[in-house]
Design a protein around this nucleic acid. Structure first.
Lengths: 332, 332
DNA sequence: CCATCAGATGTTTACGTAAACATAACAGCA
DNA sequence: TGCTGTTATGTTTACGTAAACATCTGATGG
């Protein structure tokens, strides 16, 4: 900066003013400074800036793996929105979703150059974690339960699940089976709860729960079991991957979808329109979740006050070809 | 830091020494300092550290979208390896893969707190881009052509493609059709080139090229065309998503896989084992690509000299149920 | 018994920036 | 003419840290 100032024949403070676009600099001077910057290839030093300003213009994102489509899409939206606001995004992957690991990530974060934190994690660990963060570092949690400790942005899991169940009941199915996600997952739990609630409200019997682990493989295994139940005419799978495995198992066992069994998924991953048959599913707006996370965290930063409460992003039922009314002899 | 020093009754320099784990500090003093740190909740200020040390301990990752499975898995491995080395990862998503956008990302990077850059981008734009980076910022490119400008880490696209084609020829197919990825993609181009080369070397005629855009939907459209060609008994799809769409189209048109048509994919996404039928495909080791990117970039940083040349990560053929010998009347 | 040396700790300084304050030049106005 | 206010610019300082150098203490050995 001093070099630029010397070359432009001004003080370093003026260079600073130009570099930050402040008013009150003569246009002519400004041009000279800009010219000098170009000539010397000057770049502001962000470390010094951060030190002086006391902020890093960076948001940290803690996420358990990038394996799930949802996490990734949310992350992408976060990175994009953050960039628009002039913030960078620093990634903190957590290998295993244990409390220790998460706490470890938070403590590493303490030493990290970060003004705020967004946690994308579907496991319900956060309320229990004693998190120690530098003061004024705001937190927003996506996809999880955070008790009343933090702002939470999430997809409307319950609404989506209920819509899925209702759709199947409306088609005339006596009841709807549920292929649930893993017990540890908070999202899975809420989908299961909503499935059961919707059935109960409709006065239907809830069949026994079948559980997978989100993977297509686990959906396949569950499908082999379900294919043996002739009374199973409609299945709500807690995600599209498991629905994919389910479709394969049913096909192999000679149970036709949707004629014999209707299947509905959750997520609407890009591939689900190409399944056999194309999958009816609940669309999640991950991008919106990401955007709201960033908006929330920035709002908190400006106010410098943590907010509480949950924002729900609505879902949308996407009709394709994997659901149909039950055969006449099985109808309600 | 001064507060900690005062409380511990030492100089700030000693606190610095403890905080950095330097030797030459009396054990007793060390404990006092640590105690004082705990009591005051002291956290080193990373901005000041970066300013003083002249390095940020951060790697920037430029990527075009997080839509492709490969990019994401590579990114995940990068973040994990980087964390192990004590480096943070800052994300720079580029919305559109145009030269301007990429150049823009690089220039934003210039103001960013980053010691090195990894570019994950399958489009071949980089050689043309006049990149202006701060001095001593090293670059590694994954998945792309970078001319001779940078270190490149990539999957052995050619080897994998050749293995796929050879597998189908070995099964007895007269020739192998190819469902290619988009023209702009460097990876797609290399897969196509290798497919053609392998056929030529085996003395076979290369059928006309069918092109998709990586999406399952485009695979479906291509599949409708291919299903009409009775001479098409084996297809090498440039990725698993397109293979998925292809499977659906063939199924709808009454062409059975693998009896009538063999299909092989590329990538080995987690779902491909649950396709109908489970997909034979070429496994890519994205994690290894990510690890090598980080290793490469750190090596360059320590040497402070850019390296050139390409590292290829080998692939592996994963046999499942979508490939089989052709029917007798179609055999070679 | 003192020179020498190693280990432990303190003092000074600079990293690059921007806020706060200071100064200078000049226009408007009574 | 001198006062006030505005605009443009310069000077000083502090952000938190760690390298470089300085100092102090006590032990070792001839």
């Amino acid at each position: 900066m001093a070099d630029v100032a010397r070359l432009a024949g001004v003080s370093s403070q003026t260079v600073s003013r130009v570099s930050n676009g402040y008013a009150g600099v003569n246009e002519e001077t400004r041009q000279q400074v800009l010219e000098a910057m170009r000539e010397l290839g000057y770049r502001p030093n962000s470390a010094a800036r951060a030190l002086k300003r006391g902020e890093f213009r960076t948001i940290g994102v803690i996420t358990f793996g990038l394996s799930s489509t949802g996490n990734v899409r949310t992350l992408e939206a976060i990175a994009t929105s953050a960039a628009q606001e002039g913030y960078a995004v620093t990634l903190l992957p957590v290998a295993v979703p244990t409390q220790d690991e998460v706490r470890g990530a938070f403590s590493r974060l303490g030493e990290l150059a970060v003004d705020a934190v967004i946690v994308i994690m579907e496991v319900h660990l956060l309320d229990a974690v004693t998190i120690s963060l530098p003061p004024h570092v705001q937190v927003v949690v996506a996809d999880s339960d955070a008790g009343d400790s933090y702002t939470v942005v999430d997809t409307d899991q319950a609404g989506g699940s209920r819509a899925a169940v209702r759709h199947l009941l409306d088609l005339g199915h006596r009841t709807v089976w549920h292929l649930a996600g893993p017990e540890e997952s908070f999202a899975a739990q809420r989908r299961t709860d909503a499935w059961r609630a919707e059935l109960v409200e409709a006065g239907r019997e809830a069949p026994p729960l079948v559980r997978g682990d989100w993977s297509a493989e686990s959906g396949y295994r569950a499908g082999l079991v379900l294919a043996d139940r002739p009374d199973c005419t409609a299945v709500f799978a807690a995600n599209d991957q498991m629905a994919l495995g389910l479709l394969r198992a049913l096909h192999e066992q000679g149970r036709y979808v949707p004629d014999d069994v209707s299947v509905i998924g959750f997520d609407d991953i890009p591939e689900s329109g190409s399944f056999l048959p194309p999958l009816t599913t609940v669309h999640q707006d991950f991008a919106e979740v990401g955007r709201r996370c960033v908006a929330g965290v920035l709002r908190q930063m400006h106010l410098d006050v943590p907010e509480r409460g949950t924002t729900l992003v609505p879902t949308r039922l996407v009709m394709r070809e994997s659901t149909a009314p039950p055969r006449m002899d099985q109808a309600h």
